[in-house]
């Protein structure tokens, strides 16, 4: 995998590239050392979320480009939960990079990628923006979900909808969707919020909704 992104680095204006998998963390990078792996993981996960959001508006989405004043980030999803992003100088050759990304993606699809990774940094859940409530869940749980999502919106803003959907999906995939597992759900949401102060504020916001649900 590292060999393939090394080829990207040969393109004029390309500083380097990274591959982040939602459930495996940072798979490969050839960016200079001052781009810390922890930061690259954060960026990769943000790009996975942005890609998932983009696909809700554009089903045929190919690339996302973020133009900063001194750098450009070009991101392409290799599959649903793996994103490749390239950091470039503003003068990079876009056509050449595009062609190389197409070739790299073809190679990935034909499973020619080696599975070796350079460094595994803390994994995070895959961003799939479709909630999948399950049959057999406790009555009234949907109302509680709505309140949990509403509270999350006050903490995370417009990203809350996507994050809540993916957390619900992960939670329901791990077991029955009933109140006995609500602590696991809250824990997953807290992991997505990350910021300790925001987690505290969120737990305060949802405390009354949880109490009401318990009362029935």
């Amino acid at each position: 995998m590292i060999n393939l992104i090394d080829e990207l680095k040969a393109i004029p204006g390309v500083v380097g590239a990274s591959i982040v998998a939602a459930d495996e963390g940072l798979k490969a990078t050839n960016l200079p050392a001052f781009f810390k792996p922890e930061r690259l993981l954060v960026v990769g996960n943000h790009l996975l979320k942005l890609y998932a959001a983009g696909q809700m508006s554009f089903s045929d989405l190919t690339d996302i480009t973020l133009n900063f004043d001194e750098s450009v980030v070009v991101a392409r999803a290799l599959d649903k939960s793996i994103i490749l992003f390239v950091i470039c100088e503003p003068t990079f050759n876009n056509n050449l990079l595009n062609m190389s990304l197409n070739l790299l993606q073809d190679e990935f699809k034909s499973s020619n990628f080696a599975t070796t990774s350079t460094a595994a940094v803390a994994p995070t859940p895959a961003p799939t923006p479709t909630p999948t409530p399950q049959a057999g869940k406790d009555e009234g749980l949907e109302d509680l979900f709505a309140q949990l999502e509403s509270g999350l919106g006050k903490i995370l803003g417009p990203m809350a909808e996507f994050i809540f959907a993916e957390v619900i999906e992960k939670w329901t995939a791990e077991g029955a969707a009933n109140y006995s597992r609500i602590d696991e759900l809250i824990k997953l949401i807290n992991q997505e919020i990350i910021d300790v102060n925001k987690i505290e504020k969120y737990n305060q916001l949802i405390a009354s909704a949880l109490k009401e649900f318990q009362k029935g």
Binding site: F35, V42, V43, L61, T62, I64, T65, F68, D69, S71
Partner: peptide, 13 residues
């Protein structure tokens, strides 16, 4: 996270 300057624009191809 990356210490970049301001974001001029984001594009979706």
């Amino acid at each position: 996270s990356m210490g970049f300057g301001y974001c001029c624009y984001v594009s979706f191809a």
